[in-house]
């Protein structure tokens, strides 16, 4: 089976960037968790998750985003969700996560 989520790792001025392409759901959320765990973060850096190419996000995907946020805070770093698509943004708003997670590029 072809993976329904591809994660491309990169870097920008503020820290590491993970660009997600595909569906973030029960089947693929563990991939994001692993990718976040494998990403080195130093205090003060920002881990950017580029969600511009995420087509679908379910409750497991949300859990993985929250876990990424927890991990960033534990490293004294921060997490930013970049270019969140309208569909995912709507879910984040319903869950109240738009106040908890930093969003950029809206």
């Amino acid at each position: 089976m072809t993976p329904e989520l591809t994660i491309n790792a990169g870097h920008n001025a503020t820290g590491p960037v993970l660009a997600l392409v595909g569906d973030l759901d029960h089947a693929t959320a563990p991939q994001l968790r692993t990718a976040v765990t494998d990403t080195a973060l130093t205090p003060g850096q920002i881990l950017t998750l580029d969600l511009s190419a995420v087509a679908f996000c379910d409750s497991s995907g949300i859990t993985a985003l929250i876990a990424a946020h927890r991990r960033a805070l534990a490293q004294e770093a921060d997490l930013v969700l970049a270019d969140v698509p309208a569909r995912v943004l709507r879910i984040l708003r319903i869950l109240g996560l738009d106040q908890v997670l930093r969003l950029a590029g809206q």
């Binding site: 949300i62 859990t63 929250i66 869950l95 109240g96 996560l97 106040q99 908890v100």
Partner: peptide, 13 residues
């Protein structure tokens, strides 16, 4: 408005 999901955030509202 402003209600957050239950059980996972450090400071829910």
């Amino acid at each position: 408005p402003g209600g957050t999901l239950v059980g996972i955030l450090p400071r829910p509202h």
